[in-house]
Design a protein around this nucleic acid. Structure first.
Lengths: 337, 337
DNA sequence: TTGTATGCGTTATCAA
DNA sequence: TTGATAACGCATACAA
């Protein structure tokens, strides 16, 4: 059902129909009535494609998450949606699945859908493409990971600080043989969490030999294999720092399989206070991100830009340490196979 | 950058540019070369809005999930995306957040975006609206919950069978005072899981008094309050059947708060074998859905329809019981506050 | 091989 | 208050 068809049925011009629907006050009460009932009866839904071709904008926001299975992003999405809904905007979500190629396709899709803007967690997409899209008028807000773009609003975490929190906790407990499982070094989160961690170790004079550093992919399977390798080392680490919750799930698998006890055999600390972190055995000590805040700020930043703000705004949020039961002092006899 | 602008730069007509880009073989090698390099240089991205206004279709699928925080849906989404990607389709995801109103808006958005079809988990949206959209040519596949539409493909679970699995397991263990936390009775999943469960109890001559039935909303908070009420009963149930994983998370909270031991004080069984179910203490006995299959089948069904199949196809998948450690025989002295 | 003209469904501008 | 008409960017039938 189109405006045109409706106009024939009612013997009115398309413009009248269009007006009756979008700006009812500009049309006589009788016509308005007629049009509205007829439109409802025929189940007319305006073709937003045509509409946005006309005004070059949709009342929709895009969100690109790196991994839809990661509960961290689900929380962010919910907050973004709630801000968007309060302004009458819809959200469409795309999943990059930690694949820069998929991310690029999602970006292009959202661009072509003419969304008002996109909230974007990079997985490493080509910066040149991003720049092109930006120049073509796509409004972006980077969250969680920086994309390399200039002049975009960003809502990031102080990853180095979070890593410091984790490192100091482990060090204070007396660990000295500590392994880290981090994410891709192409991502700021992967880099900063590793670098922040190793900096603290260096400050305290604790070595972090290469065999104790695993660079995985921020996913469950990657975390699993990384921890399997770490546990097979001749001299097993007494503590593990895992750079996100997905890899932590994999770490838990590996530990269970080998019937290793936490924290008696290995202490465990990771990023992200996801829901299940407190229910697992033992409850996990984590570095928690303010996920709700990230989503809210990102959405508000986007709307401010839409409203005309010119200069970029950057937030860097502080994570906090939540101590539960997965970290304890090392047991001296526990090292070695 | 538009075709028109490009055409001025190159002194060629828009149609030539268009052809060079979309059907290069119809254009002379030199022009093709010129156009392609210039397009790349200017970062031209075709406006898919205009494109789909023209052909009335987008190479994109829509997915409406009831609750993006529910890992069950994340798994389904991933499978759908992988089938879609293999056919060169993108996916846009919308979150209804268990709110029929939000679902309706998502439906309209996807309709207006001219997606090729949508995979749809109902939260109870108005059937009349759905019918309208369907008549306007929107292709739908119902998953998980039936929407009430005729002539749509469906991929559902045999919920009654799953509930039976759970009930029989608890009954075989010797429980007779069993409580159930189910979802909205407007949803087939909420109804069938309750009904299937109570049927088995009736068959075995076990009473299910109204105070032992909590109808919640399939979300963590709802599950929490429901279990709080159940645990405050003068005669506490010895076992709990929880109809999905989100409410199970809430149930776990309530139990932890009251320092109740599982399964010694209360046995626990729920739907959905989410990832964390095996890591919590104790590992959860669950009724597992074949989530991967659901997504794959739904996507394939959609593509078959797109390819012209006329009649609707309906799948009903069988869940299975996964026994872990959260169910045990009731302890006789454990009842009463 | 290339260009011209038309239409997709809407909205905005201008007249009537 | 209403109607005719021209865009929006692209794709195609048709003409050159």
């Amino acid at each position: 059902m189109t405006l045109h068809e409706l106009s024939k049925q009612l013997n009115l011009s398309v413009s009248t129909i269009s007006r009756a629907l979008s700006r009812p006050e500009l049309v006589s009460p009788e016509t308005r009535e007629k049009v509205l009932t007829s439109a409802a009866a025929h189940g007319y839904t305006p073709n937003a494609i045509a509409r946005s071709l006309k005004n070059g904008r949709t009342r929709a926001l895009g969100i690109i998450v790196s991994d839809i299975q990661n509960p961290f992003y689900s929380s962010v999405v919910r907050e973004v949606e709630s801000v968007a809904a309060s302004r009458g905007y819809n959200c469409v979500i795309c999943n990059a699945d930690e694949d820069p190629h998929r991310e690029e396709r999602a970006l292009e899709l959202l661009m072509s859908l003419q969304v008002a803007g996109v909230i974007h967690a990079s997985t490493g997409a080509n910066t040149a493409l991003l720049q092109n899209l930006q120049q073509s008028g796509l409004l972006l807000v980077d969250i969680d990971r920086v994309s390399g773009l200039e002049d975009v609003d960003t809502v990031l975490l102080d990853n180095a600080f979070g890593a410091r929190l984790a490192a100091e906790h482990l060090l204070d407990l007396g660990h000295s043989r500590i392994a880290v499982v981090t994410g891709p070094q192409t991502l700021t989160t992967g880099r900063d969490r590793l670098h922040g961690f190793s900096t603290v170790l260096a400050e305290r004079g604790i070595a972090l030999p290469p065999e104790l550093v695993e660079v995985a992919n921020f996913r469950e399977a990657g975390g699993y294999s990384a921890v399997v390798r770490l546990l097979a080392l001749p001299e097993r680490p007494t503590a593990l720092f895992v750079a996100n919750n997905e890899m932590m799930a994999g770490a838990l698998s590996a530990l269970h399989e080998r019937a290793l006890r936490v924290p008696q055999d290995v202490s465990l600390i990771s990023f992200d206070d996801v829901r299940w972190a407190r229910y697992v055995e033992p409850p996990l000590t984590v570095v928690a991100q303010p996920t709700g805040q990230i989503g809210t700020l990102a959405a508000e930043l986007l709307f401010e830009r839409l409203a005309g703000r010119g200069e970029a705004v950057h937030y860097v949020l502080k994570p906090e340490l939540i101590q539960r039961a997965s970290c304890a002092p090392p047991q001296l006899l526990a090292s070695g196979p």
